[in-house]
Amino acid sequence: MRPRRLLTPWLLLAPALAVALVFHIVPFFRTVQLSFTDFRLSSGGQYIGLENFGALASSEVFWLSAGNTLLYVVVVVPLLVALPLLLALLVQPKIPAMPFFRASFYTPVIASMVVVGLIWVFLLKEQGPVNWLLQTLRIVQEPLPFLTDGTLLLFSCMLVTVWKGLGFYMVIYLTALANVPGELHEAAQVDGAGSIRRFWSVTIPSVRPTMLLVGVLSAIAAMKVYAEIYVIAGPTAGPGGTVRSMVFTIREVGSGFDGQIGYAAAMSLVLFVFTIGLTVVLQKLNRENREA
């Protein structure tokens, strides 16, 4: 092979490779390196072996953050796999006015998380519309403290994540649904299957790979939750700081001139391992499902 031919693909790759190297690969390895140090911007750092990881293991705040993050994944991911599919089925028919609904459901996706968060803060206030509705319908006697009670705050944040994500995953499902051959539905209909039966036996198996994709994407997003918590629970992460996610804590300990960057890097690495682990488990589950 002539050298020119060998060089051309690399030249074409170079811009993308440079971006990946500078913005992804080098920072990743720098994070790995820093996680073994007690680095601070102000005073620098030294290698301290696995001390950061030992400190993490015995840190209540870390386990609280990890627990909340896991809870977030457990609650948010199933909702974000199921609800957008139902929504996609609803808006799939090509009838007038449907594009309007599709666009409406997609709007929260393009809105900034801060704006969405502020809107929900207004809705969820003690004297806000949601509490007014719940009281008017006599579902509750007293207004619910959505924004001041630790547990309710976490669920309020989850609600916002789900609401904002619906449109995005709906669009992914719409593409998948468009690829389901119509003949399958027709054949099932001829065999006497009703719409519910067709949903379980035709639609679900056809979009299963997409469900896995949505599951993985939403799980990764849920692992990285930050903005919802900051906007809704405030900079303290709710009363007692109990509504914190891992990213919230990473940012808190790592920011500022005195930020413990080494410790924050170690926590980032743990989050990375958790995320990869979760993705692998989801993929494995799907494979077993398919083989079964």
């Binding site: 009670d149 900079p235 303290t236 009363p239 005195d258």
Partner: peptide, 21 residues
């Protein structure tokens, strides 16, 4: 009293206000 100290302190005071501490 930087942001990190402030948030750690206020998180506890919030609990006193809500009556949890």
């Amino acid at each position: 009293y930087d942001d990190q100290v402030k948030n750690a302190v206020l998180a506890k005071i919030q609990l006193a206000l809500t009556g949890e501490l």
